[in-house]
């Protein structure tokens, strides 16, 4: 066997030809299921956020505490802005078509992973801090006892610190290695 014989060895392996109608039916069904999942995810995210907006807006209108009102306003704005930010990011993440040359695909994949890593690295500023500060101010401003407010603030801080850590770990353990791998593939092309 020589290197030049390999294509005939390879092509002599007569894999059973798939049934075109069955492949089409499976592709159509999977495509519909995928679109349904994406639509459902977007709808759930939007409804959940919009449902919270009137609650926080009402809290801002009704409370007599300036601190609580400020917290409620922060939360109202956050509930409007965060889903938009997530949706914009997801549009970029989902947009990577596979019909380009491998080099173009890998570049676009790298951009996508880098954007995802940026989003998680900055999660403190656009997600955790507004929500964390908002809930602490809303609860603390309306609470009668300062030890309770302090305890709640401590709990929120610890919980959000844990969320922050999870996000950074995801960057370090999943996204960074993928970036290194994509760089290696691109440099090898």
């Amino acid at each position: 066997m020589t290197f030049e014989d390999l294509p005939s060895v390879w092509q002599s392996d007569r894999e059973r030809a798939p049934d075109p109608e069955a492949v089409l039916a499976a592709a159509v069904e999977q495509s519909r299921a995928l679109e349904k999942t994406v639509r459902g995810r977007d709808r759930l995210e939007t409804v959940a956020s919009l449902a919270m907006v009137p609650l926080f807006a009402a809290s801002a209108a009704m409370t007599t505490s300036t601190v609580a009102r400020t917290g409620a306003v922060i939360l109202t704005v956050a509930c409007l802005v965060i889903p938009l930010r997530l949706r914009a990011a997801r549009l970029l993440f989902d947009a990577n078509g596979r019909d380009g040359e491998l080099r173009a695909f890998l570049r676009s994949e790298r951009e996508r992973v880098a954007a995802q890593a940026r989003l998680l690295r900055t999660v403190l500023w656009w997600y955790l801090l507004p929500l964390g500060v908002g809930v602490v101010m809303l609860f603390g401003g309306g609470a009668q006892s300062w030890p309770l407010s302090l305890g709640y603030a401590a709990f929120v801080t610890v919980f959000y610190a844990w969320l922050y850590r999870l996000n950074q770990r995801a960057v370090a353990e999943h996204l960074k290695p993928r970036l290194v791998e994509l760089d290696s593939l691109l440099s090898g092309l």
């Binding site: 894999e15 798939p18 089409l24």
Partner: peptide, 18 residues
């Protein structure tokens, strides 16, 4: 077009996947 592709490339993609 898809059915035509499956007919012409079905076995090729199977080999590629292997």
């Amino acid at each position: 077009a898809f059915l035509e592709l499956v007919r012409s490339h079905g076995p090729r993609l199977l080999r590629l996947a292997s």
